[in-house]
Measured scan of single mutants.
Amino acid sequence: SLEELLKLARHALRHGEEIHVLDRVITDEHEIKRLIEELERLI
């Protein structure tokens, strides 16, 4: 769900981890922040 993805993204950002989204691995902090902003808009 989007909520789950948002939780994962926030966790990854906090802990400096990578996040796997739709067969992509996002490691860049700015990309993760952008993902979080997009998800928050959708929810």
Rank of each mutant, 00 (worst) to 15 (best):
S1Q: 12
S1W: 14
S1G: 11
L2N: 04
L2A: 06
L2V: 07
L2I: 09
E3Y: 11
E3N: 08
E3H: 10
E3A: 09
E3K: 09
E3P: 04
E3V: 11
E4C: 06
E4S: 10
E4G: 07
E4K: 12
E4I: 11
E4R: 11
E4F: 11
L5S: 02
L5H: 02
L5I: 08
L6H: 01
L6G: 00
L6V: 05
L6S: 00
L6D: 00
K7D: 09
K7L: 11
K7T: 08
K7A: 15
K7G: 06
L8E: 07
L8T: 07
L8W: 07
L8G: 04
L8S: 06
L8Y: 08
L8K: 13
A9G: 01
A9N: 00
A9R: 02
A9T: 03
A9K: 01
R10S: 04
R10A: 04
R10M: 12
H11I: 07
H11M: 06
H11L: 07
A12V: 03
A12N: 02
L13A: 05
L13F: 05
L13S: 04
L13W: 05
L13N: 02
L13G: 01
R14Q: 15
R14E: 15
R14I: 15
R14G: 08
H15L: 08
H15P: 01
H15I: 07
H15V: 09
H15M: 11
H15T: 13
H15S: 11
H15D: 05
G16E: 03
G16D: 04
G16Q: 08
G16L: 06
E17S: 13
E17I: 15
E17P: 02
E17D: 07
E18A: 15
E18P: 15
E18Y: 09
E18I: 11
E18M: 10
I19E: 00
I19D: 01
I19R: 01
I19Q: 01
I19Y: 05
H20R: 15
H20I: 13
H20F: 10
H20E: 07
V21Y: 14
V21R: 03
V21E: 02
L22V: 08
L22S: 11
L22N: 15
L22W: 12
D23V: 03
D23E: 07
D23G: 14
D23M: 04
D23H: 06
D23Y: 02
R24V: 08
R24I: 08
R24N: 06
R24G: 05
R24E: 05
R24C: 04
R24Y: 08
R24H: 08
R24S: 06
V25G: 03
V25K: 06
I26K: 01
T27W: 08
T27R: 12
T27C: 04
D28Q: 10
D28W: 05
D28R: 07
D28Y: 06
D28C: 05
E29K: 14
E29P: 15
E29L: 13
E29F: 13
E29V: 15
H30Y: 13
H30A: 14
H30R: 13
E31D: 11
E31F: 06
E31V: 08
E31C: 05
E31Y: 05
I32V: 06
I32R: 01
I32K: 08
I32P: 00
I32D: 00
K33Y: 11
K33A: 10
K33C: 05
R34W: 12
R34I: 12
R34P: 01
R34G: 09
R34Q: 14
R34E: 15
L35A: 02
L35Y: 11
L35P: 00
L35G: 00
L35F: 13
L35K: 01
I36A: 02
I36H: 00
E37S: 12
E37V: 13
E37L: 14
E37N: 11
E38K: 12
E38A: 12
E38H: 14
E38T: 15
E38V: 14
E38D: 11
E38N: 11
E38Q: 15
L39S: 00
L39D: 00
L39I: 10
L39V: 06
E40V: 09
E40S: 05
E40F: 05
E40K: 06
E40M: 08
R41I: 08
R41H: 08
R41W: 10
R41V: 07
L42M: 12
L42P: 00
L42K: 10
L42D: 03
L42Y: 07
L42V: 07
L42F: 07
I43C: 03
I43H: 02
I43M: 06
I43L: 12
I43S: 02
I43D: 01
